[in-house]
Amino acid sequence: MGPREQHLLIIPLLTATLVVMAVVSVATGAVAIDLASLPGILMGNADAAARDSVIVWSVRLPRTLLAMLVGAALASSGAILQGLFRNPLADPGLVGVSSGSVLAAVATIVLGQNYFGETATRLLPVTAFIGGLLTTILLYSIATRDGRTYTATMLLGGIAIGAIAMALTGVLIFMSTEQQLREFTFWSLGSLGGATWAKAASVGLFMLFALCLWPILARGLDRLALGEAEAGHMGINIQILKRAAIVATALLTGAAVAVSGAIGFIGLVVPHLLRLIMSPRHRFLIPAAALLGAILLLAADMIARTIVAPAELPIGIVTACLGGPVFLWMLLTNVRQIET
Protein backbone atom coordinates (compact mmCIF):
# COMPACT_ATOMS: atom_id res chain seq x y z
CA MET A 1 0.00 0.00 0.00
CA GLY A 2 1.42 3.38 -1.03
CA PRO A 3 1.52 6.21 1.48
CA ARG A 4 -1.41 7.92 -0.25
CA GLU A 5 -3.63 4.86 -0.38
CA GLN A 6 -4.73 5.55 3.18
CA HIS A 7 -8.34 5.93 2.01
CA LEU A 8 -8.46 2.13 2.14
CA LEU A 9 -8.00 2.51 5.90
CA ILE A 10 -9.58 5.90 6.51
CA ILE A 11 -13.06 5.11 5.19
CA PRO A 12 -13.55 1.92 7.32
CA LEU A 13 -12.02 3.74 10.31
CA LEU A 14 -14.43 6.66 9.92
CA THR A 15 -17.36 4.25 9.52
CA ALA A 16 -16.45 2.42 12.73
CA THR A 17 -16.04 5.73 14.60
CA LEU A 18 -19.42 6.88 13.35
CA VAL A 19 -21.14 3.72 14.59
CA VAL A 20 -19.57 4.08 18.06
CA MET A 21 -20.45 7.79 18.17
CA ALA A 22 -24.05 7.05 17.16
CA VAL A 23 -24.43 4.53 20.00
CA VAL A 24 -22.93 6.99 22.50
CA SER A 25 -25.18 9.76 21.16
CA VAL A 26 -28.31 7.66 21.68
CA ALA A 27 -27.25 6.84 25.25
CA THR A 28 -26.13 10.37 26.21
CA GLY A 29 -28.35 13.26 27.18
CA ALA A 30 -30.27 14.91 30.00
CA VAL A 31 -31.50 11.39 30.88
CA ALA A 32 -28.70 8.83 30.62
CA ILE A 33 -29.65 5.50 29.05
CA ASP A 34 -27.79 2.43 30.26
CA LEU A 35 -25.77 1.04 27.32
CA ALA A 36 -26.65 -2.52 28.40
CA SER A 37 -30.39 -1.84 28.02
CA LEU A 38 -29.98 -0.23 24.60
CA PRO A 39 -30.11 -3.45 22.50
CA GLY A 40 -33.33 -4.41 24.31
CA ILE A 41 -34.93 -1.02 23.59
CA LEU A 42 -33.90 -1.14 19.95
CA MET A 43 -35.24 -4.69 19.55
CA GLY A 44 -38.56 -3.58 21.04
CA ASN A 45 -38.05 -5.80 24.10
CA ALA A 46 -41.01 -5.46 26.51
CA ASP A 47 -38.73 -5.58 29.57
CA ALA A 48 -37.17 -2.23 28.73
CA ALA A 49 -38.32 0.75 30.77
CA ALA A 50 -41.19 2.47 28.95
CA ARG A 51 -39.72 5.93 29.63
CA ASP A 52 -36.31 4.98 28.18
CA SER A 53 -37.98 3.41 25.17
CA VAL A 54 -39.92 6.61 24.41
CA ILE A 55 -36.78 8.76 24.84
CA VAL A 56 -34.76 6.55 22.50
CA TRP A 57 -37.38 6.05 19.81
CA SER A 58 -38.94 9.50 19.64
CA VAL A 59 -36.07 11.78 20.69
CA ARG A 60 -32.57 10.32 20.56
CA LEU A 61 -32.73 8.11 17.45
CA PRO A 62 -34.28 10.68 15.09
CA ARG A 63 -31.93 13.33 16.47
CA THR A 64 -28.84 11.18 16.08
CA LEU A 65 -29.87 10.24 12.57
CA LEU A 66 -30.60 13.86 11.69
CA ALA A 67 -27.24 15.05 13.07
CA MET A 68 -25.45 12.41 10.99
CA LEU A 69 -27.35 13.25 7.81
CA VAL A 70 -26.98 17.01 8.18
CA GLY A 71 -23.25 16.71 8.97
CA ALA A 72 -22.78 14.40 5.98
CA ALA A 73 -24.75 16.73 3.69
CA LEU A 74 -22.84 19.87 4.72
CA ALA A 75 -19.39 18.28 4.53
CA SER A 76 -19.95 16.56 1.19
CA SER A 77 -21.43 19.70 -0.36
CA GLY A 78 -18.31 21.56 0.89
CA ALA A 79 -16.12 18.97 -0.85
CA ILE A 80 -18.13 19.32 -4.07
CA LEU A 81 -18.10 23.14 -4.01
CA GLN A 82 -14.35 23.25 -3.36
CA GLY A 83 -13.84 20.89 -6.30
CA LEU A 84 -16.16 22.89 -8.56
CA PHE A 85 -14.54 26.24 -7.79
CA ARG A 86 -11.05 24.71 -7.60
CA ASN A 87 -10.68 26.56 -4.34
CA PRO A 88 -10.20 25.16 -0.84
CA LEU A 89 -12.02 28.19 0.61
CA ALA A 90 -15.37 27.49 -1.02
CA ASP A 91 -18.03 26.51 1.49
CA PRO A 92 -21.82 26.60 1.46
CA GLY A 93 -21.64 29.34 4.14
CA LEU A 94 -18.87 31.46 2.67
CA VAL A 95 -20.22 31.46 -0.86
CA GLY A 96 -23.64 32.63 0.27
CA VAL A 97 -25.57 29.45 -0.61
CA SER A 98 -26.77 28.79 2.90
CA SER A 99 -27.64 32.47 3.43
CA GLY A 100 -30.02 32.07 0.48
CA SER A 101 -31.55 29.01 2.11
CA VAL A 102 -31.90 30.86 5.45
CA LEU A 103 -33.52 33.85 3.75
CA ALA A 104 -36.01 31.57 2.01
CA ALA A 105 -36.73 29.76 5.28
CA VAL A 106 -37.23 33.01 7.21
CA ALA A 107 -39.45 34.37 4.43
CA THR A 108 -41.52 31.21 4.73
CA ILE A 109 -41.82 31.63 8.51
CA VAL A 110 -42.78 35.30 8.37
CA LEU A 111 -44.54 35.91 5.03
CA GLY A 112 -45.75 32.34 4.57
CA GLN A 113 -47.42 32.19 7.98
CA ASN A 114 -49.05 35.58 7.43
CA TYR A 115 -50.65 34.44 4.19
CA PHE A 116 -50.95 30.67 4.44
CA GLY A 117 -50.95 30.01 8.18
CA GLU A 118 -49.33 26.92 9.71
CA THR A 119 -49.23 24.93 6.43
CA ALA A 120 -46.39 27.22 5.29
CA THR A 121 -44.04 25.76 7.92
CA ARG A 122 -44.45 22.33 6.36
CA LEU A 123 -43.17 23.74 3.08
CA LEU A 124 -39.94 24.92 4.75
CA PRO A 125 -37.64 22.21 3.38
CA VAL A 126 -38.93 22.93 -0.13
CA THR A 127 -38.55 26.72 0.07
CA ALA A 128 -35.14 26.51 1.77
CA PHE A 129 -34.05 24.15 -0.95
CA ILE A 130 -35.26 26.48 -3.71
CA GLY A 131 -33.57 29.42 -1.95
CA GLY A 132 -30.27 27.54 -1.90
CA LEU A 133 -30.60 26.51 -5.55
CA LEU A 134 -31.39 30.04 -6.73
CA THR A 135 -28.47 31.51 -4.78
CA THR A 136 -26.09 28.90 -6.20
CA ILE A 137 -27.22 29.58 -9.77
CA LEU A 138 -27.02 33.35 -9.25
CA LEU A 139 -23.52 33.16 -7.78
CA TYR A 140 -22.36 30.81 -10.49
CA SER A 141 -23.58 33.09 -13.28
CA ILE A 142 -22.01 36.13 -11.60
CA ALA A 143 -18.63 34.36 -11.34
CA THR A 144 -18.68 32.90 -14.87
CA ARG A 145 -17.69 34.85 -17.97
CA ASP A 146 -17.10 33.30 -21.39
CA GLY A 147 -17.28 29.80 -19.92
CA ARG A 148 -14.66 30.50 -17.25
CA THR A 149 -15.40 30.66 -13.55
CA TYR A 150 -13.40 33.29 -11.68
CA THR A 151 -12.78 32.23 -8.11
CA ALA A 152 -12.08 35.69 -6.63
CA THR A 153 -15.31 37.00 -8.22
CA MET A 154 -17.07 33.96 -6.82
CA LEU A 155 -15.90 34.60 -3.25
CA LEU A 156 -16.62 38.34 -3.44
CA GLY A 157 -19.98 37.65 -5.10
CA GLY A 158 -20.76 35.22 -2.27
CA ILE A 159 -20.02 37.92 0.29
CA ALA A 160 -22.24 40.39 -1.58
CA ILE A 161 -25.10 37.90 -1.92
CA GLY A 162 -24.67 36.97 1.76
CA ALA A 163 -24.93 40.67 2.73
CA ILE A 164 -28.02 41.21 0.58
CA ALA A 165 -29.64 38.07 2.00
CA MET A 166 -28.81 39.26 5.52
CA ALA A 167 -30.34 42.70 4.84
CA LEU A 168 -33.52 41.11 3.52
CA THR A 169 -33.54 38.78 6.52
CA GLY A 170 -33.29 41.93 8.69
CA VAL A 171 -36.35 43.40 6.99
CA LEU A 172 -38.25 40.18 7.68
CA ILE A 173 -37.18 40.24 11.36
CA PHE A 174 -38.54 43.76 11.56
CA MET A 175 -41.88 42.50 10.26
CA SER A 176 -41.96 39.39 12.42
CA THR A 177 -43.99 38.60 15.55
CA GLU A 178 -42.47 37.36 18.86
CA GLN A 179 -43.16 33.74 17.94
CA GLN A 180 -41.73 34.13 14.44
CA LEU A 181 -38.65 35.83 15.89
CA ARG A 182 -38.05 32.82 18.12
CA GLU A 183 -38.35 30.52 15.11
CA PHE A 184 -35.90 32.75 13.24
CA THR A 185 -33.33 32.46 16.04
CA PHE A 186 -33.50 28.74 15.49
CA TRP A 187 -32.58 29.23 11.82
CA SER A 188 -29.79 31.70 12.32
CA LEU A 189 -27.92 29.74 14.99
CA GLY A 190 -28.77 26.25 13.85
CA SER A 191 -30.29 23.55 16.01
CA LEU A 192 -31.18 19.91 15.76
CA GLY A 193 -33.67 20.36 18.60
CA GLY A 194 -36.79 19.75 16.56
CA ALA A 195 -35.54 16.47 15.10
CA THR A 196 -38.26 14.10 13.90
CA TRP A 197 -38.25 10.96 11.79
CA ALA A 198 -39.93 12.95 9.00
CA LYS A 199 -37.14 15.56 8.97
CA ALA A 200 -34.46 12.89 8.96
CA ALA A 201 -36.25 11.10 6.13
CA SER A 202 -36.49 14.28 4.03
CA VAL A 203 -32.74 15.00 4.35
CA GLY A 204 -32.06 11.34 3.62
CA LEU A 205 -34.18 11.57 0.47
CA PHE A 206 -32.31 14.64 -0.80
CA MET A 207 -29.03 12.86 -0.01
CA LEU A 208 -30.15 9.89 -2.10
CA PHE A 209 -30.83 12.19 -5.08
CA ALA A 210 -27.40 13.77 -4.65
CA LEU A 211 -25.83 10.33 -4.37
CA CYS A 212 -26.99 9.57 -7.93
CA LEU A 213 -24.73 12.39 -9.13
CA TRP A 214 -21.68 11.06 -7.29
CA PRO A 215 -20.19 9.08 -10.25
CA ILE A 216 -20.32 12.15 -12.54
CA LEU A 217 -18.82 14.33 -9.81
CA ALA A 218 -16.10 11.88 -8.76
CA ARG A 219 -14.78 11.51 -12.30
CA GLY A 220 -15.23 15.13 -13.35
CA LEU A 221 -14.05 17.06 -10.29
CA ASP A 222 -10.69 15.23 -10.21
CA ARG A 223 -9.99 16.29 -13.77
CA LEU A 224 -11.36 19.77 -13.17
CA ALA A 225 -8.53 20.22 -10.65
CA LEU A 226 -6.31 20.67 -13.73
CA GLY A 227 -8.53 23.45 -15.11
CA GLU A 228 -11.59 23.56 -17.31
CA ALA A 229 -9.77 23.31 -20.65
CA GLU A 230 -7.72 20.31 -19.50
CA ALA A 231 -10.78 18.55 -18.09
CA GLY A 232 -12.52 19.13 -21.43
CA HIS A 233 -9.54 17.64 -23.30
CA MET A 234 -9.83 14.57 -21.06
CA GLY A 235 -13.39 13.93 -22.17
CA ILE A 236 -15.32 15.69 -19.41
CA ASN A 237 -18.47 17.52 -20.45
CA ILE A 238 -17.86 20.62 -18.34
CA GLN A 239 -21.40 21.96 -18.59
CA ILE A 240 -22.92 18.69 -17.34
CA LEU A 241 -20.33 18.49 -14.55
CA LYS A 242 -21.03 22.03 -13.36
CA ARG A 243 -24.77 21.53 -13.40
CA ALA A 244 -24.45 18.23 -11.52
CA ALA A 245 -22.25 19.91 -8.90
CA ILE A 246 -24.66 22.84 -8.52
CA VAL A 247 -27.72 20.61 -8.22
CA ALA A 248 -25.98 18.29 -5.72
CA THR A 249 -24.78 21.23 -3.59
CA ALA A 250 -28.16 22.90 -3.60
CA LEU A 251 -29.91 19.61 -2.72
CA LEU A 252 -27.55 18.87 0.15
CA THR A 253 -27.21 22.37 1.60
CA GLY A 254 -30.83 23.25 1.02
CA ALA A 255 -32.06 20.12 2.79
CA ALA A 256 -29.58 20.51 5.67
CA VAL A 257 -30.38 24.18 6.26
CA ALA A 258 -34.10 23.52 5.98
CA VAL A 259 -34.12 21.12 8.93
CA SER A 260 -31.32 22.52 11.08
CA GLY A 261 -30.65 26.15 10.22
CA ALA A 262 -27.28 27.57 9.20
CA ILE A 263 -24.54 25.43 10.71
CA GLY A 264 -21.15 26.81 9.75
CA PHE A 265 -17.63 25.46 9.27
CA ILE A 266 -18.45 21.77 8.71
CA GLY A 267 -18.47 22.20 4.92
CA LEU A 268 -15.27 24.23 4.97
CA VAL A 269 -13.13 22.37 7.49
CA VAL A 270 -13.94 18.72 6.82
CA PRO A 271 -12.76 18.35 3.19
CA HIS A 272 -9.70 20.45 3.98
CA LEU A 273 -8.79 18.32 6.99
CA LEU A 274 -9.19 15.13 4.95
CA ARG A 275 -6.96 16.34 2.11
CA LEU A 276 -4.15 16.67 4.63
CA ILE A 277 -4.29 12.95 5.43
CA MET A 278 -5.68 11.25 2.34
CA SER A 279 -5.88 11.38 -1.44
CA PRO A 280 -7.81 14.39 -2.77
CA ARG A 281 -9.52 12.16 -5.36
CA HIS A 282 -13.23 12.92 -5.08
CA ARG A 283 -14.19 9.24 -5.40
CA PHE A 284 -12.84 8.83 -1.85
CA LEU A 285 -12.95 12.42 -0.62
CA ILE A 286 -16.72 12.90 -0.98
CA PRO A 287 -17.74 9.75 1.00
CA ALA A 288 -14.98 10.35 3.56
CA ALA A 289 -16.17 13.96 3.97
CA ALA A 290 -19.73 12.71 4.46
CA LEU A 291 -18.54 10.31 7.20
CA LEU A 292 -16.31 12.83 9.00
CA GLY A 293 -19.01 15.52 8.70
CA ALA A 294 -21.49 13.12 10.31
CA ILE A 295 -19.03 12.32 13.12
CA LEU A 296 -18.21 15.97 13.84
CA LEU A 297 -21.79 17.17 13.82
CA LEU A 298 -22.81 14.28 16.05
CA ALA A 299 -20.03 15.26 18.48
CA ALA A 300 -21.04 18.93 18.30
CA ASP A 301 -24.66 18.01 18.93
CA MET A 302 -23.72 15.92 21.98
CA ILE A 303 -21.80 18.91 23.37
CA ALA A 304 -24.69 21.27 22.51
CA ARG A 305 -27.27 19.22 24.38
CA THR A 306 -25.22 18.14 27.39
CA ILE A 307 -22.90 21.05 28.29
CA VAL A 308 -25.69 23.24 29.73
CA ALA A 309 -28.26 20.44 30.31
CA PRO A 310 -31.20 20.49 30.72
CA ALA A 311 -30.98 23.63 28.53
CA GLU A 312 -29.48 23.39 25.09
CA LEU A 313 -26.85 25.44 23.25
CA PRO A 314 -27.52 26.24 19.58
CA ILE A 315 -25.32 23.85 17.61
CA GLY A 316 -24.04 26.63 15.31
CA ILE A 317 -22.26 28.11 18.32
CA VAL A 318 -20.51 24.81 19.03
CA THR A 319 -19.38 24.24 15.41
CA ALA A 320 -18.09 27.82 15.16
CA CYS A 321 -16.23 27.52 18.51
CA LEU A 322 -14.57 24.28 17.35
CA GLY A 323 -14.31 25.03 13.63
CA GLY A 324 -12.91 28.56 13.86
CA PRO A 325 -9.72 27.66 15.76
CA VAL A 326 -9.23 24.44 13.74
CA PHE A 327 -9.50 26.40 10.51
CA LEU A 328 -7.01 28.99 11.74
CA TRP A 329 -4.63 26.22 12.75
CA MET A 330 -4.93 24.66 9.28
CA LEU A 331 -4.24 28.02 7.64
CA LEU A 332 -1.17 28.64 9.77
CA THR A 333 0.34 25.19 9.28
CA ASN A 334 -0.44 24.80 5.58
CA VAL A 335 0.16 28.25 4.12
CA ARG A 336 2.39 26.78 1.41
CA GLN A 337 -0.05 24.13 0.31
CA ILE A 338 -2.93 26.59 0.21
CA GLU A 339 -1.03 29.25 -1.70
CA THR A 340 0.38 27.00 -4.46
Binding site: G227, I236, N237, P280, R281
Partner: peptide, 28 residues
Amino acid sequence: WNARELAGRRAVLSQSTSLVFPFTVHEV
Protein backbone atom coordinates in the same frame (compact mmCIF):
# COMPACT_ATOMS: atom_id res chain seq x y z
CA TRP B 1 -17.48 14.62 -31.84
CA ASN B 2 -18.54 14.20 -28.23
CA ALA B 3 -15.99 15.03 -25.54
CA ARG B 4 -15.43 11.49 -24.30
CA GLU B 5 -15.07 9.99 -27.76
CA LEU B 6 -12.60 12.70 -28.76
CA ALA B 7 -10.55 12.19 -25.59
CA GLY B 8 -9.55 8.70 -26.72
CA ARG B 9 -8.42 10.03 -30.08
CA ARG B 10 -6.55 13.23 -29.34
CA ALA B 11 -4.73 14.47 -26.26
CA VAL B 12 -3.63 18.01 -25.52
CA LEU B 13 -0.90 19.53 -23.39
CA SER B 14 -1.61 23.22 -22.83
CA GLN B 15 1.05 25.86 -22.38
CA SER B 16 0.40 26.28 -18.67
CA THR B 17 -1.58 23.96 -16.49
CA SER B 18 -2.18 24.62 -12.81
CA LEU B 19 -3.29 21.95 -10.39
CA VAL B 20 -5.18 22.59 -7.18
CA PHE B 21 -5.25 20.09 -4.29
CA PRO B 22 -2.37 17.81 -3.25
CA PHE B 23 -2.40 15.02 -5.86
CA THR B 24 0.52 12.61 -6.17
CA VAL B 25 2.35 12.05 -9.45
CA HIS B 26 0.65 8.67 -9.83
CA GLU B 27 -2.77 10.26 -9.31
CA VAL B 28 -2.11 13.04 -11.84
